[in-house]
């Protein structure tokens, strides 16, 4: 396969960026999208240029590091996959592909396609945890969890924190990410003591990081590589409003 790539190049966070056009040949349709970028970078380095910086780590769809907006689609055109799980057979030979970084004020570009998603770490630090006694491991069946609650928590826990929801949201809101964490912990007995305070403090931190507001357009759900449901957002809204009405403190 031979492809024409239009890639966002930006030397540093402070520098201005612009699109560069590259032609990359020798691409196999069995390559992942990231391996195709590796191929391009090999070509760029051999030509004495600066390789394209991009985020990646596990390359098996579980770490949440890879990003990229491919032809306007977060993580590319295949539903429920990360960029590393996207294969070149999803593209036609000779195709032109536009590759951009995730765009959000709260996710500043570090270099080229790599963005700083520390804002998510701040949201997790604000309340994405439970309080537990230390000491020996507790008996696995000491606390019973209804199947429905376990399923709901597990579905929400599938979030890998990649930030695709923010990138796809027309308002760059972080509601789906935050809601996934709030729903995951709030659905389990172990998460109950901090449930209301958690919703308040995580939303407060999300707001202070400069994300937008939710307008219920469900672009996040469609783009999410783990297919987290926007029903988690309804759940978080419930927890948040209940805590607000009860006059709880974050």
């Amino acid at each position: 396969m031979k492809l024409t790539l239009q890639i966002w190049r930006q030397p540093s966070a402070e520098a201005d960026g612009n699109f560069e056009i590259y032609t990359v040949g020798g691409v196999s349709e069995d390559m992942s999208f990231l391996e195709m970028i590796d191929q391009l970078n090999r070509q760029i380095v051999l030509d004495g240029g600066e390789p394209v910086a991009f985020d990646h780590d596990c390359r098996e769809g579980i770490c949440g590091m890879c990003s990229m907006v491919i032809n306007g689609e977060v993580h590319g055109p295949i539903k429920g996959t990360t960029t590393c799980q996207l294969h070149m057979r999803s593209f036609k030979d000779g195709a032109k592909i536009v590759i951009e970084p995730f765009r959000a004020k709260a996710f500043p570009v570090v270099k080229d396609l790599a963005v700083d998603r520390s804002a998510f770490d701040a949201i997790i630090t604000a309340g994405g945890f439970i309080t537990s006694r230390t000491g020996s491991a507790p008996d696995g069946n000491a606390i019973l969890v209804p199947k429905e609650d376990a399923d709901q928590a597990m579905d929400a826990a599938a979030c890998i924190g990649c930030g695709g929801c923010v990138a796809a949201c027309p308002n760059a809101a972080a509601m789906l990410f935050t809601a996934a964490k709030v729903t995951h912990l709030g659905s389990l007995p172990q998460g109950q003591p901090e449930r209301r305070a958690r919703a308040l403090s995580m939303v407060q931190e999300m707001d202070s990081q400069g994300f937008g507001n939710c307008t219920n357009e469900r672009e996040c759900e469609a783009a999410c590589p783990k297919e987290i449901s926007v029903m988690t957002i309804a759940q978080m809204n419930r927890d948040y409003l209940r805590a607000s009405i009860a006059g709880d403190e974050a």
């Binding site: 907006v69 306007g72 765009r103 809101a173 469609a222 783009a223």
Partner: peptide
């Protein structure tokens, strides 16, 4: 606030979720 949350718009645009003419033009 929503406008401010994305300073640089995307070059290529594609919407695949529930975005509609109605939601876009509120």
């Amino acid at each position: 606030e929503n406008r401010a949350a994305r300073e640089v718009p995307y070059h290529a645009k594609a919407a695949h979720g529930g975005r509609t003419t109605a939601s876009r033009s509120m």
